[in-house]
Design a protein around this nucleic acid. Structure first.
Lengths: 148, 148
DNA sequence: TTCGAAATGTAGCCGAGGCTACAAATATCC
DNA sequence: GGATATTTGTAGCCTCGGCTACATTTCGAA
């Protein structure tokens, strides 16, 4: 009997399903900072030629100490490299993350604008929303924008 | 003429604008937990007649100790009340927060589904997205859904 | 070339939100 | 009513991402 006719559709107890949704949101949040930094570092390198902690801090609106600490985390996770008193660079993995994040970010902004949100609100909201959009939903966004 | 009397530049330096967007996203994140709890407590009281820490913890997929600590924060912030070994209740402010959160949550799910996202993905993503949707964007969602 | 300003890095603090382990109160069942 | 199970609460630990204060390094300008 093919799988598709087998009985056990993962009809999770609704309680557990809800718990899983919350867990997913929490784990998305945990990587949000990494995505923001990767995206920003990549942009800075592209437009300024280098990504320096002070610039990163100013763009994110945090103290330079906070930026440096987060950059340390990026390094721990294998997303970035840097030498003392030199700029920050992305590893291959970091570049990939940055690329995906940027693409998602743009799609989210475009979709919000297409729906009718004011540009400024769309850009502000996208900063928080982008980290929680799954690939499936993202694909739906892309299809919608193509249709228009 | 002192700076403070000068007409403010209509366009913020882009750097600063970006920093403000990130700050907004961070502050939204700070209230996300409160919103989730308020919404859930309100639902539990409506459907079960009471909101008990163990149930809250199970629904959120978190240990009961974590739930109790967060409930303590809700109380500190004037959103909930509880007596020792008794259930949790929302204050007027807590009810208001719950009501707004629930409305926003529903709108977000509905919009994602309307755009074409699979229901399950929409519900999962909404859990994270809802906390970052501004009133302006929310209004755009409502208009869009009405048009359809 | 030196010296002061700017950038970078380090140390240590805080609160939030996770966790486990243990203690205390309440509910349940015989 | 008393033993046991469940629920609730407390204590203490962790990481993360904020911060300020201070130390060090680099850079630019006199």
């Amino acid at each position: 009997m093919p799988d598709k006719y087998r009985s056990p559709p993962p009809t999770l107890p609704p309680e557990q399903a809800q718990a899983e949704r919350f867990e997913k949101a929490r784990s998305a949040q945990a990587t949000a900072v990494l995505e923001d930094y990767a995206e920003l570092i990549s942009d800075l390198i592209a437009t300024e030629g280098e990504a320096r902690p002070t610039d990163i801090a100013r763009r994110l609106g945090v103290s330079h100490a906070t930026a440096i600490k987060s950059i340390a985390r990026l390094k721990r996770e294998g997303l970035a490299t840097s030498k003392l008193y030199r700029g920050v660079f992305l590893t291959e993995a970091g570049e990939n993350l940055a690329r995906r994040s940027r693409a998602r970010h743009r799609l989210v902004v475009d979709l919000l604008v297409a729906i009718g949100a004011p540009r400024a609100a769309a850009e502000a909201d996208a900063e928080g929303i982008e980290h929680h959009v799954s690939d499936e939903t993202l694909a739906a966004f892309a299809r919608y924008l193509n249709r228009k």
